[in-house]
Simulated assay, not measured.
Amino acid sequence: MAKKKKVAASDILTMYMDYVVEHHSKPESVTSFTEIHALDEEVFYTHFTSFKDVEKDIYLLLFENSVAILKQTPEYISFTKKDKMLSLYYTFFENLSLNQEFIKINLKGFENQLKAFSTFSRLKRGFKAFVEDLDLETISLNVDTIENIQKKTIKESFWIQFLFTMKFWLDDTSEAFEKTDIFIEKSLNTSFELLNTKSLNNIIDLAKFLYKEKVK
């Protein structure tokens, strides 16, 4: 059988996911994977450097598809920032549910945070870019350095929360992942309330004072 010399990256992603679901493990090697699918090995390396590279793209693609679906919704533009975030979570985790067989095999041992951080590196960049585009309000300090730290902290905090939600979803055995939906709503409500909590002013005032004293 002649080997295919032109295959789209998206086709390789699908082949990889199907293989993992069927065999409950990743392929032994790129060579064996391409032979099974009658691909020229060079075609694989045209798009990806390794299976880890494939996995990184899978999670990024799931996220980008979720964002694209949201932005095609006519009502999305009128959503509040919190509702945009909630809608993203619900859409993304619905996409995870549609692909749960692959994801639960692929993320077995999710407790290994180093593995998760590596696999989600592109997803993380996409997620943090989404949070940045929301332009969530920070407390005005008139100190650029501290305000930049605030923005970075907000993006990192939401990312950590996102990871916690993924772990919760992986462990969720409720029907149609109903408990995950509840967790998403409660955790995001809490996060947005914290962004607006007036008691944070005292902490920020102290940080501002310490910063000014340090630069004198």
Rank of each mutant, 00 (worst) to 15 (best):
L107G: 01
Y90C: 03
L170D: 02
F168N: 12
F79Y: 14
K214F: 03
S10W: 00
V143F: 06
E101V: 04
K5A: 13
S32D: 13
N95P: 01
D57G: 00
K6G: 00
E22P: 01
R122N: 07
A129E: 09
N95E: 09
T145Y: 10
Y90I: 08
I36C: 01
L107C: 09
E147G: 08
E185L: 05
T73F: 05
V54W: 01
N148C: 12
M15T: 02
I139E: 09
F209Y: 14
D83R: 11
K212H: 12
K208V: 15
H37E: 02
M85S: 06
K212N: 13
E41M: 13
Y211E: 14
A68M: 09
L88H: 02
V143R: 10
L123T: 00
K198V: 09
M15C: 08
V30L: 08
L39C: 03
K82P: 01
L86E: 10
D53M: 04
F177A: 05
F48W: 02
S50Q: 05
T14N: 10
L88V: 07
E41W: 05
T173W: 02
H37Y: 15
S191Y: 07
L206Y: 10
T180F: 08
D181C: 11
A176D: 14
F110A: 12
L210E: 14
Y89Q: 07
M15I: 07
K81F: 03
K115P: 00
K208E: 14
L70R: 02
I184G: 00
M15S: 03
K152N: 15
A2E: 15
K56Y: 03
K3N: 12
V20W: 00
K212R: 04
T173V: 02
A9G: 07
E22K: 13
E111W: 13
A116E: 07
T49F: 02
D181Q: 15
K167M: 14
V30G: 08
A8M: 11
F92G: 00
Y89R: 04
T119K: 10
D172N: 02
S97H: 04
I146W: 08
L194Y: 08
E185R: 05
I182V: 14
T138Y: 08
E185N: 11
L136M: 06
L88I: 07
D205E: 14
L188I: 09
F168V: 01
L200C: 04
N202K: 15
T173S: 12
E42G: 05
A129K: 09
K52A: 07
S32C: 12
N99C: 02
L136F: 10
H37I: 04
S191A: 14
S87T: 11
F33V: 11
V21G: 06
